[in-house]
Structure formats: C-alpha cells, structure tokens
C-alpha cells in the first residue's frame, strides 16, 4: 500500500508529512514531527501516556491511525506553555510536586487541559474521572489531583484578572 500525505494542524501550526499505512498518530507525532512529549507506555490504549487532544477531545494517540484524522486540530503538551511561560496547570504541577518520573505527566496534563476547556471549575470527582484513563506508578495520584484543582483555580484567577 502506498503512503498517504497527511495534513494536520498541530499546536496551531500546519503540518504535512508522508505516512506509511498503519502509522498511528503517536508514531507520526514522535517520528515524523519530532514531538516526543507524548509517550509510548503500552501502545494499546490502556495507560494514557500518549494522550493528546484531537479536535477538542482527549484521545490515546497510539490507537488513532493518522490517515483517519486528516485535517484535524491536534494539541500536544509541547503547545501548552505560552512560549517560555508555564500554563497555570503546568505551574501547579511543578509547585505541587505532582511529578516524579515524569512519564505519565504529558498524558495527565493533556487530560486535565481537555477537562478545564470544558469545565473551568471542576470538582475533585470531575478531576478523578478525567484522569481515570491515565496510569501513574509513582505518586499515588493525590498530588496530581490536587495540582489539577490548583491549576484550575489559577486559570480562573488569571482570566478574572484579565477581565478586570
């Protein structure tokens, strides 16, 4: 089978590349585009380390054949910060000691980002549901849940300040 030319918008930028049949979005991001924040933890959609946002929905990129989402808007962790400035969620993760080995962090942050886009004031239960597909082996989750709630509060405070 022939390769396909795939066009995507990745973190707001146009991307165009040649994909072999069966190339997953994860492989495309990591190998074609050099965006390695999304990780391969299981390659079968059960760990959440490869989570990215496609057209507003968080998905495991290891399960998405990239030729099936031509034209989609893809957001990865690389696009979260404003240049050098951490987003409220990122800052909350750093200051809240919500990272250890860091391998689940990209997926956690993308799940949390998708949650906050829909629900800027989540409850603890909302956060738990949002990251229930993201496995962490180091932290025991508590600091991650706390950091997402903290990040949501920071984002609300920032948008209130901007509105004033």
């Amino acid at each position: 089978m022939a390769s396909t030319i795939v066009q995507l918008t990745v973190n707001g930028q146009d991307a165009e590349f040649l994909a072999k049949p069966g190339t997953t979005l994860l492989m495309a991001l990591r190998e074609n585009l050099g965006l390695t924040a999304a990780k391969r933890g299981c390659a079968q959609g059960t760990c959440g380390t490869c989570d990215v946002i496609v057209d507003g929905r968080v998905v495991p990129s290891c399960l998405i054949p990239v030729e099936t989402i031509v034209g989609a808007a893809v957001e990865t962790l690389e696009g979260l910060a404003d240049g050098n400035a951490l987003s409220p969620l990122q800052a909350a993760f750093v200051e809240g000691f919500a990272t250890q080995c860091g391998f689940c962090t990209p997926g956690m942050l993308m799940s949390a980002t998708a949650l906050l886009a829909e629900n800027p004031a989540p409850t603890r239960g909302d956060v738990v549901r949002a990251i229930s597909g993201n496995v962490c082996r180091c932290t025991g989750y508590e600091a991650i849940v706390d950091a997402i709630l903290d990040g949501a509060a920071r984002a609300r405070a920032a948008s209130t300040a901007a509105a004033d």
Partner: peptide, 17 residues
C-alpha cells in the same frame, strides 16, 4: 498482559493519608 488486566487502584480509590 496490560493495564486493563493488571489491577491497581486508580485516582478514585485513594485512601485519606
């Protein structure tokens, strides 16, 4: 052979510490 079969507590199953 994967995380759906190898059981571990998720963020909804945490004890208060």
């Amino acid at each position: 052979t994967d995380y759906s079969e190898y059981l571990m507590p998720g963020p909804a199953d945490l004890a208060a510490m």
